[in-house]
Design a protein around this nucleic acid. Structure first.
Length: 607
RNA sequence: GCCCCCAUCGUCUAGCGGUCCAGGACGCCGCCCUUUCAAGGCGGUAGCACGGGUUCGAACCCCGUUGGGGGCACCA
């Protein structure tokens, strides 16, 4: 016999299912009756499809519900026909009473926006854990939370989940904040900003968790569990079940005597949350209805044997305490949502939470292939892009495209434009591949749109980092930089490109790229270098136009070479590369001395 | 194994039952411009996974199949 069946009778129903007065707008459906169900919790099996309770029928929930129902194609308006097709048992969603009335005004379709009733202001949060490098997927999540908050006029809370002392570091923490700010994200509450719900680092909130855990235990929502993993596995095996099913809720109804006996053995219990005896479902902001059957999620550990609270516990607790209304997070957390919902119900019951938040599970960012971009993958490290000289606005723009689009025929936009247009219910549910080429193209567009002075300003650190100019540049360097900048700007994809492109202007002797030499400094090119040197040596008008005229006369007309054959060797001699800014301008800026010296040096190399 | 998510050009997406022999962007390929490379301009290539159903009509709604991904900790 299933131990749970008999034991359940022993539980005082009131211990869990208190019929508390509810806040307006909540508890719209039937009372939540976690443990009143008479059904057997057959894992993964459909069951009693009828009138589901809506355990989480907060106001906010309904708003989200409708928005996402639309995504699923269920965009029906009052008066329009609803295709009430028969659905198989177990998949039926009873939307509960009162919903139609609610939906009427809640449509957030572009055309219907603005008629939305005022609801509680949106509060989103971003809660990274400072362990090592910053992942592009993480930053994308932060960006979407930011955009959602800004778009709705709500606020963004930053909370640091540093409960893992072994992996967290102060350095990672600093770096994380720095990366967020680099991208252009700001938060309304959190570290270094403060706010009424602090502290915002979980390492400083242990007392809070202890207190909440005690409340949950006192109310019967959580209970002490003594089973070891080995014992659970043994029981599963003995029952002919897959041990992967996990904990079997065996300790749910231990008597005081049993508990005492376990303690006498020296066992330290963990605290587990009692999962409700009903399906757990929610309407995801990006995916629509998601449902987990009763029994598919076992009672989970919220506090370790040593008293340390665990992530699945502290995360919702803090969300509740901080008044978070919208949780936008990675798809990887989707399977843990039923637990969060159950926890929320319990928290609500003990007066800690006002109601569950809306959830939106953002699609994965994948790398090559279709696997989730791993933290180990160098491509996932945001620093790489930053160091290469991606513009924050360009990178943010690209990140936004990973799952969202601003319009049918546009994909270049600013952060402000994103905030203006962002609608989380229009985020795609598909995983998105990180495409470096496209990221570069988007960035290049932003780069070119920069005012020249700003381009120079942003490029200087890269030039200085390569030891090419002083920071700030000397007046002479500044003069050269300003003159060449427009030509470099339209040839750059990322800021660091200027190092290779302009380096030759800031060194005394140029390093000639061997491949370039092989191609353009052959023995037969010697005459070109000689002629160019002769033409430039006596040039009075050292200007772009003067240089152009002199070189054309000497090389094209004088030697009868085609432009390509004429200017290639000169370019390599002067810049060291086959690719450079326009030649005449480059020579002008380089000046007669260095130009002639390089032509002579290249003459030697050409043989 | 169980549970969940996903499915439109190579890639990211638009598409919300007729306006779609499917639109944009990146990439790729041509051409133009040109002292190189870019940029820019013009043009091209390429896609609704499959099978049922609902409907006068389906890329769009429903079911299934197949394929891909993720989660199943006293880690976050």
């Amino acid at each position: 016999m299933d131990p749970r069946q008999g034991l359940r009778l022993l539980l005082p129903a009131g211990a869990v299912d208190r019929d508390r007065p509810r806040r307006p707008g909540q508890g719209r459906g039937r009372p939540r009756d976690h443990l009143h169900g008479r059904r057997r919790a057959a894992p993964g099996r459909p069951h009693q499809p009828a009138a589901l309770r809506r355990p989480h029928a907060g106001l906010l929930h309904l708003a989200g519900h409708d928005a996402a129902a639309r995504r699923r194609g269920a965009h029906r308006h009052p008066g329009r026909r609803r295709p009430d097709q028969p659905r198989p048992a177990g998949r039926v969603l009873d939307r509960g009473p009162g919903l139609a009335g609610q939906r009427r005004q809640r449509c957030r379709h572009r055309l219907h926006r603005g008629r939305r009733p005022v609801t509680a202001p949106v509060r989103t949060r971003f809660c990274p854990s400072p362990t090592g490098t910053v992942h592009v997927g993480l930053l994308r999540t932060a960006l979407f939370n930011w955009a959602h908050a800004r778009h709705t006029g709500g606020s963004l809370v930053l909370r640091i989940e540093d409960t893992d002392a072994a992996r967290d570091s102060e350095e990672s923490y600093r770096h994380l904040l720095d990366s967020l700010r680099w991208l252009g994200l700001d938060w309304d509450e959190g570290p270094e900003v403060g706010g009424p719900h602090g502290p915002y680092r979980q390492s400083q909130r242990h007392d809070v968790y202890r207190e909440v855990a005690a409340k949950l235990a006192a109310a019967g929502h959580a209970y002490e569990s003594f089973s070891t993993n080995e014992e659970v596995e043994a029981r599963r095996l003995a029952a002919g079940q897959d041990p992967k099913l996990g904990y079997d809720n065996a300790d749910r109804f231990l008597t005081d005597a049993q508990r005492a006996a376990f303690r006498a053995e020296g066992r330290e219990p963990v605290l587990r949350l009692r999962m409700p005896d009903s399906d757990l479902a929610w309407t995801d902001l990006v995916r629509g209805e998601v449902r987990f059957a009763v029994g598919s999620v076992p009672d989970f550990v919220i506090v370790r044997g040593n008293g340390a609270p665990l992530y699945p516990f502290v995360n919702p607790v803090d969300d509740a305490l901080m008044g978070i209304t919208d949780v936008l997070r990675g798809e990887d957390l989707l399977p843990s949502t039923p637990r969060q919902l159950a926890l929320y119900a319990a928290l609500q019951d003990v007066g800690v939470a006002a109601g569950p938040p809306r959830f939106g599970h953002l699609p994965y960012v994948t790398g090559e292939g279709s696997k989730k971009l791993s933290k180990r993958d160098p491509q996932s490290n945001v620093d790489v892009y930053r160091e290469r000289g991606f513009l924050p606005e360009g990178f943010a723009n690209y990140l936004a495209l990973l799952g969202w689009s601003i319009a049918e025929d546009r994909d270049v936009f600013s952060m402000a434009e994103m905030a203006e247009a962002f609608d989380v219910t229009r985020v795609s549910a598909n995983p998105a591949r990180f495409d470096l080429k496209k990221a570069e193209a988007i960035n290049a567009t932003h780069l070119r749109e920069l005012p020249v002075e700003e381009f120079v300003e942003r490029a200087v650190p890269f030039l200085a980092g390569a030891g090419l100019v002083a920071d700030p540049p000397t007046p002479e360097q500044d003069r050269v930089l300003r003159a060449i900048a427009p030509l470099a700007q339209e040839r750059s994809v990322v800021l660091s490109d200027v190092v290779g492109l302009l380096g030759f202007l800031f060194v005394e002797e140029v390093q000639i790229d061997p491949a370039a030499a092989a191609k353009n400094l052959r023995p037969e090119d010697g005459e070109v270098l000689d002629a160019a040197a002769d033409a430039l040596r006596d040039l009075d008008d050292w200007s772009t136009a003067g240089i152009e005229q002199a070189l054309k006369a000497a090389l094209v007309e004088g030697l009868g070479r085609k432009p390509r054959q004429a200017f290639g060797p000169v370019r390599v001699a002067v810049s060291g590369r086959t690719v450079s800014p326009p030649l005449y301008e480059s020579i002008e800026l380089l000046g007669p001395e260095r130009t002639l010296a390089r032509l002579a040096a290249a003459r030697g190399a050409a043989g």
